[in-house]
Amino acid sequence: MIDAKHSLILIAVMAGVTILLRFLPYFVFSKHTPKAVLFLGSVLPYSLVAMLLVYCLKDTDFTSQSHGIPEIAAVAFVALLHKWKHNTLLSVLCGTIFYMIMLQFVFA
């Protein structure tokens, strides 16, 4: 561990920059929001969730011994289960258990 003072400063910097990023759009646009920004705000959620999904799976290694099969199978399983039942909690629970079994037993 580096000394406490430098640690505190680094944590303050991480927190400060993150807070700045989260608040900046509000400070800049809260008085007047241009139409283009409103448009972005309304459609970005669709694009960004797709991007986050890619982000979650970015470390999947298709050349590894499991060839990424657990990831692909579990994503397909969650998508189908959710299309069928539309129960978020059920989909998360079953999907995670499915993936853990694939990872720990099937492709161990």
């Binding site: 999904l53 979650c56 579990a74 994503v75 998508a79 299309k83 978020t88 995670t96 993936y99 990872l103």
Partner: peptide
């Protein structure tokens, strides 16, 4: 052995993706 438990976050994004898709 919690290996794979963090998939719950991926599952959440898959679910939200499906909801948005519909």
């Amino acid at each position: 052995n919690s290996a794979g438990l963090d998939f719950s976050m991926t599952a959440l994004f898959v679910i939200i993706f499906v909801e948005q898709w519909e």
